[in-house]
Design a protein around this nucleic acid. Structure first.
Length: 203
DNA sequence: AGCACGATTAACT
DNA sequence: GTTAATCGTGCTC
């Protein structure tokens, strides 16, 4: 019997320019082994942040306790808290001392859907994981995972290989929510999205 | 110690 | 379209 190939993405995937990683995360599978249960979704929206010159990035203030993980090696999680109630999941990319990260903004649920439904009760299925805070609620991701290594086979949070998404299915535009950020950072097209993924993949 | 604000969400009118 | 919820972070005093 053939051994199954490892599916977890390795460090070299994250050790590339932020825009390249953000684009190539589309179609990959975000997985959380949550209390032994696989909760997973296909990544369908991601945004790149990086460089102290990027005034939309938290690292614009330099090294602080919060931003330090972005100055570390690629392939680690950067999880932060905002608006007093929401967790945001990012992946650190590029070389150490070159602060950059990818915000995961939306996924399409594929595993543990019953558990996702419980955690997103009172919301319709189309809104279960269509925002960065919603993903962390649905997949039960919080500060426990800030700084963890996504490439270590022992960690319960990681990204797996998936089906490639063609350029014809991808839209590129400005990042969301940077209302008070000056130009050009407010409008720079560092957001990558697969519109209508669930329609394209309807069975 | 106090302050203003935020890579959002859900529930409003 | 508007707005409340709610608190960690980084800055000023």
């Amino acid at each position: 019997m053939l051994m199954s190939q490892p599916q977890r993405l390795t460090r070299s995937f994250y050790d590339r320019p932020a825009l390249e990683v953000a684009r190539n995360l589309l179609g990959k599978r975000l997985v959380h082994i949550d209390d032994g249960r696989r909760i997973a979704g296909v990544i369908i929206e991601a945004e790149a942040y990086g460089g102290e010159e990027d005034l939309g990035c938290h690292c614009r203030v330099g090294r602080t306790p919060r931003t330090l993980v972005m100055y570390g090696p690629p392939g680690h999680a950067y999880v932060y808290f905002t608006y007093g109630m929401h967790w945001m999941l990012n992946f650190v990319v590029e070389a150490p001392d070159n602060p950059a990260a990818i915000l995961i903004r939306a996924v399409h649920p594929v595993e543990g859907v019953d558990i996702i439904a419980e955690r997103r009760v009172s919301q319709p299925a189309v809104h279960w994981t269509d925002g960065p805070g919603k993903i962390c609620q649905a997949l039960n991701i919080d500060k426990r995972y800030n700084g963890i290594d996504l490439c270590d086979e022992k960690t319960p949070l990681f990204v797996e290989k998936g089906e490639a998404v063609p350029d014809s299915s991808v839209t590129i535009g400005p990042r969301v929510g940077l209302n008070t950020v000056p130009e050009p950072w407010k409008s720079i097209p560092w957001r990558f999205k697969v519109p209508r993924y669930e329609v394209l993949h309807a069975s």
